[in-house]
């Protein structure tokens, strides 16, 4: 339903974002998100029948890169500052599933 968000949806969004909140926090976010959506509901008062969806207001030609590789020398530093690294790898908890997630 437009203009509404349920507490369950807020819980799901938090879960998808890998964030955990207390019930109090969830209620507060629920209220905030509801208010934000209500605010945007004002747009529905406009007649936008003939306007195509706009993902950005600018339509100029953006700059593009040439297909020429350039070395970057900072990878050692990034590895050094990583929460966990070993050898040349960033280390993460064991990923059980064999598949490489990509679709």
């Amino acid at each position: 339903m437009p203009g509404h968000v349920s507490l369950e949806e807020v819980r799901k969004i938090a879960q998808l974002a890998k964030l955990s909140f207390s019930e109090e926090e969830l209620t507060r976010f629920f209220q905030d998100i509801s208010d934000i959506i209500a605010h945007f509901e004002k747009l529905n008062e406009l007649d936008l029948e003939d306007v195509s969806p706009t993902s950005h207001i600018s339509w100029s030609q953006p700059p593009m890169n040439p297909d020429e590789p350039v070395d970057w020398q900072g990878s050692d530093l990034v590895l050094k500052h990583a929460p966990c690294a070993a050898g040349r790898y960033f280390i993460v908890p064991k990923v059980v599933e064999k598949e490489e997630k990509l679709s």
């Binding site: 070993a86 790898y89 960033f90 280390i91 993460v92 908890p93 064991k94 990923v95």
Partner: peptide
């Protein structure tokens, strides 16, 4: 993701 390699212990994965 790599599951074996230099510095990648058995209980972790490397990226």
């Amino acid at each position: 993701l790599v599951h074996e390699g230099l510095g990648v212990e058995r209980n972790v994965s490397g990226v």
